[in-house]
């Protein structure tokens, strides 16, 4: 399992691995928001939590179609399926590698971009906490979407259509935590719901991903 994680990380950091693409996309989207809504500090600070969450979500989505498709194309998915590692742990490791290369950098970059959007000072802490809790769910749900569309040529768009609705609960509660935090309100309820969504996705979805992957490998 560790070998698979290390391989995926190594592949991501080598040439053409796609590490940093999601991060760069997040950066550009966030920087463009003031251009489109106008440079009004009050307005920007009001929409900052939502914009940052949506940007992080789209950046996460962007890197999903490489998650399993590359292994499918070169045949290593077949070989992994006949290896002693159960497919459930294979997809879990793949999701973890995706989170480390995409989700974690987004969490770390978000506060910097928060400055650009004039996020209120008390909001930074909750923005980072909400992203830290929410991005693992985004990776796991995304892995499920990638497993669903793995056999399709150019399935990237279809996967986005399938995955976006599944991201809605995470987005609602994640940006609610960030918004309430920024406005100095209590965040306990959305925070608990967000954590619940993440915990349930991480616990259940690897089994679903492995099941659809088995069907797709036939």
């Amino acid at each position: 399992m560790i070998a698979l994680l290390l391989r995926d990380l190594r592949l991501a950091f080598r040439a053409g691995g796609g590490f940093g693409l999601g991060l760069a996309f997040f950066l550009i989207v966030t920087v463009m928001v003031p251009f489109s809504v106008g440079p009004q500090p009050e307005l920007l600070s009001r929409i900052a939590p939502g914009v940052l969450w949506l940007g992080a979500l789209l950046a996460c989505l962007l890197s999903l179609d490489r998650l399993l498709a590359l292994d499918w194309e070169d045949g290593s998915l077949d070989l992994l399926a006949t290896a002693p590692l159960p497919l459930e742990s294979t997809v879990t490791i793949k999701a973890l590698a995706h989170w480390i290369t995409t989700g974690l950098p987004l969490v770390l970059a978000a506060p910097v971009l928060g400055v650009l959007l004039n996020l209120p000072l008390q909001g930074f802490q909750w923005l980072v906490i909400s992203l830290l809790l929410g991005t693992p769910a985004l990776s796991v749900i995304g892995t499920f979407g990638a497993a669903l569309t793995v056999g399709l040529k150019r399935g990237g768009l279809l996967m986005s259509l399938l995955v976006m609705p599944l991201y809605v609960p995470t987005l609602i509660f994640g940006s609610e935590v960030a918004r309430r935090g920024a406005e100095g309100m209590t965040v306990q309820t959305p925070l608990l719901l967000l954590a619940g969504i993440s915990a349930a996705s991480i616990a259940l979805l690897p089994f679903a991903s492995a099941a659809v992957l088995r069907v797709n490998l036939r």
Partner: peptide
């Protein structure tokens, strides 16, 4: 298809499969 990763070296590819 051989399931090789083009950006890994020969030894890295083999070591990966050995540890799997």
């Amino acid at each position: 298809s051989d399931g090789l990763k083009p950006t890994l070296t020969v030894a890295e590819n083999l070591t990966f499969w050995a540890s799997v």
